[in-house]
């Protein structure tokens, strides 16, 4: 077993406030790995640190064996580590097509942007319909599709999905969940953080439970669903 993305003993935080105290996670190629945890457990902090938005204060972030912990965000995107941030942060003053095109700004993706754009439009026909509309005028679900599509435009090898269904209507959330396994066909691997533990464990091959900035329980999706601790903490029985 070779890990595509390997996080070792990662510690970080905001100034003097430490949020992560030594988190270790391994992501296998072609798999969906879930990071579960309550609000404030450090999921978003972990994702932001992997993407380079927060400094890695201790420990290592290795991608394909290479230490990427000191690289600037855009360099990590160029390597193929792409974050779709929490809260559907699309660019409101640009059109849907312009948002998608910007996703392919890194050198590796730019050359293939026309082909990738077609694939993304096929995956989300809604985006094709609204391609010349300003992103700020889209509905919440459409913005999430756009954020996902924009992430795919970067031709990621690892896609980090931070709370992709946060604040979405249940029907749309379900639709997003059903799309995630399809994304694996692009030859990428997914790390997902979600509040909706039940739906996430259904699609996840492996999961980690974060508690107060530390990894608590780990296991494959199946065993986590059956774990009484997970059941008690997240599934409400």
């Amino acid at each position: 077993m070779t890990a595509l993305l390997e996080i070792n003993d990662l510690g970080t935080g905001y100034g003097d406030v430490k949020v992560l105290h030594g988190v270790s996670i391994a992501l296998e190629k072609g798999k969906v790995t879930a990071v579960l945890g309550a609000n404030g457990a450090g999921k978003t902090t972990l994702f932001r640190t992997i993407a380079g938005l927060l400094p890695c204060m201790s420990g290592r972030v290795r991608f394909q064996g290479e230490d990427i912990g000191v690289l600037a965000s855009h360099k990590r995107v160029e390597k193929g580590v792409v974050l779709v941030p929490e809260g559907r942060l699309v660019f409101p003053d640009l059109t849907v097509a312009e948002n998608l095109r910007l996703g392919a700004i890194n050198v590796r993706a730019r050359a293939h942007s026309d082909d990738t754009l077609k694939t993304v439009m096929a995956l989300f026909p809604r985006l094709e319909e609204r391609k010349s509309q300003y992103a700020g005028t889209l509905s919440g679900g459409e913005q999430q599709m756009l954020a996902l599509g924009r992430g795919l435009m970067a031709m990621p090898r690892v896609l980090l999905l931070d709370e992709p269904t946060l604040g979405l209507a249940p029907g749309i959330a379900k639709q997003i969940f059903s799309t995630i396994p399809e994304l694996l066909d692009f030859g990428l691997s997914i790390l997902i953080a979600e509040q909706d533990v039940r739906s996430t464990l259904k699609i996840a091959d492996y999961g980690y439970v974060l508690e107060n900035g530390l990894v608590g329980i780990t296991g494959d999706g199946e065993s986590l669903v059956r774990s009484p601790l997970v059941a008690q903490a997240f599934l409400g029985h």
Binding site: L89, F91, L102, A154
Partner: peptide
């Protein structure tokens, strides 16, 4: 241009601009 759209993206949200791979600085 892509450069100009990148600048507009920075106005929209600088953090997201980083995650997209725009060399913001």
């Amino acid at each position: 241009s892509t450069f100009g759209r990148g600048l507009v993206a920075i106005q929209g949200d600088e953090t997201s601009a980083e995650t997209v791979g725009i060399p913001v600085t």
